[in-house]
Design a protein around this nucleic acid. Sequence first.
DNA 1: TTGCACAATGGCAACGTTAACATTTGGGCG
DNA 2: CGCCCAAATGTTAACGTTGCCATTGTGCAA
Lengths: 334, 334
Amino acid sequence: MAAVKKSVSVKDVARLAGVSEQTVSRTVHDSPSVRPETKERVRAAMRELGYRPNFAGRSLRRGKFKTVGVAMFNITGTGNLDRMEGFAAAADKHGYAITLTKVDGHPYTLESASSRMSALPVDGMVVIMNRMPADFGTFEPLPGMQTVLVTMLEHPLCSTVDNDQFDCSRQVVEYLLERGHKTVHFVSCPERSLSGMRREEGWRETLRAHGIEPPQLVRGDWTAQSGYAAGQALADDPTCTAIYASNDAMAYGCIRGLESRGKCVPQDVSVVGVDDSLGDIVPDCRLTTVRFDNKRVGMWAVDKIAGAEGVEPGVEHMLFPGVLVEGDTVRDVR
Amino acid sequence: MAAVKKSVSVKDVARLAGVSEQTVSRTVHDSPSVRPETKERVRAAMRELGYRPNFAGRSLRRGKFKTVGVAMFNITGTGNLDRMEGFAAAADKHGYAITLTKVDGHPYTLESASSRMSALPVDGMVVIMNRMPADFGTFEPLPGMQTVLVTMLEHPLCSTVDNDQFDCSRQVVEYLLERGHKTVHFVSCPERSLSGMRREEGWRETLRAHGIEPPQLVRGDWTAQSGYAAGQALADDPTCTAIYASNDAMAYGCIRGLESRGKCVPQDVSVVGVDDSLGDIVPDCRLTTVRFDNKRVGMWAVDKIAGAEGVEPGVEHMLFPGVLVEGDTVRDVR
DNA sequence: TTGCACAATGGCAACGTTAACATTTGGGCG
DNA sequence: CGCCCAAATGTTAACGTTGCCATTGTGCAA
């Protein structure tokens, strides 16, 4: 009944418009060396036939895909949406597309991300690292496939970009010390989180840099519930006047935990979080926190690949500092 | 200095292995009609040269890309991460990749999503609709490009899939009525949200179906702050014993707003939300809510495209019901 | 008129892969 | 010994596009 579906090619358009295939191609690319009236004739033919340029033919000819691959071990992760927003924005800017791939994390290696991408139509790839891949030290990117890692670690062969978690802790700790607190207690996250560990280091080292021995930390698991428990535990510690929690959910949990033990925030204890993720979810609490610009991180990663048309780009490492957002949960005790 | 980068093709592998190009191709696809020892020789050659099959050549030959395009007007949106998880999972299952595109929402039309996709290497596309596109009624998908819309609306030419927002409200309202509440107050969302409006309809119609005239609704804007205001407003209404809020943030805001006016939840007023998005962020509150399976929605959409290899697939409409999750914020008043 | 520059267009080949068909080889059997 | 079958491998062409070079046409200066 129905005619066989066959894709319309330049050849068909050329025939209908009475020009050569080359002229059609030139019209598609709006070359100045085609007479306007010829162009119009070709365009009319394209419309009539419903011509759409074939990506495969084009890429084959050009040897470029104009596409960046993004490999994720976990799709659901804090900040991933913002990062994607950045990927998409940067890709758009350069006329690139984004190809998304979930990589199985068993084993958790860069190699598995890389080989997953190798057969896809991409000119470069971005890997979002949440943990430490087993082959981080030995990994080499596929030849001709520029690879950018989203991580704080530096890599000899791949460019890297991320938020500066160390600096984030430095900002928070110094902010609290400047306001007269004698020390800062820390509610951490599980040990396998790279960024969490880096925050922990930042907290520890900044305290030491100010001649303060870091107190015992309380290990949480990212959830408000664990923050709640931490808050209750720290409520009984008389030396604790300021708490820095590794994310906002735990910080909020902390506040409620402290309250449940009769402590008020910020009157009795100051609390600072990280992530600025509470915004629209909690009504009566303007938490002091650190805001990261994950969109910018994502843009940087894709820019690095899509922006370097043909140029042999060096390996770069980029850390974007967060911004401390003052809320109502810190008290000046000077 | 460095040799010119040139991609390794089947031809190179064939030469090195001393076989024909076809045998190389057959080896790549693990055809049973190649002698194991030949295969091994070819594989060795591939390894030595670092051969990777070229996607463009393959697609050109096959006329298929094994890729599904996803068009989003807003990347940052509730449930998008879960949906993407579903896209990726389903794509994986079928050996497909996902290409992500952000579509400019000016104008907010399906046509703009479609034309954005038309030049990309995709076999079909998914559009995530948040609002009502101007051309919803008149849109026709590109020929040969199967198009699935993520929306509750039905479309004559495109398959659609989404959560059942109407049923969600029905569940919530009936749940509350069964527990003895005489009516259910509603905290809504901005009017341009399709899913929000559908929830509103569900609330209204279910009440009417039970012979109850819906009370005046309170319009919110998705934020906890607006829920807080709504809670305060409703605290003074003596007929209000049960509140249904259009998302969890507003529900939580409501609870705090009620508390600020001396009302307790659930003792004085019951509160139910939608989304199950509070989980790890709020510590001391197990909100009664409705959980949607956005991953399943995403999987269905991609399955519809990637699962129908060559088959001419009909237009289908799919709504997945949410699951009411009982928490501690509803009181039985029978 | 001739020569020349330049604008507009056409012809051809190649990018890498694989479906379809063709050929070779070895073995079993009458 | 000749025949046929099946297994293994090879040859060819085509997918749609575009870079390169060739060709044609047009106007202008010599």
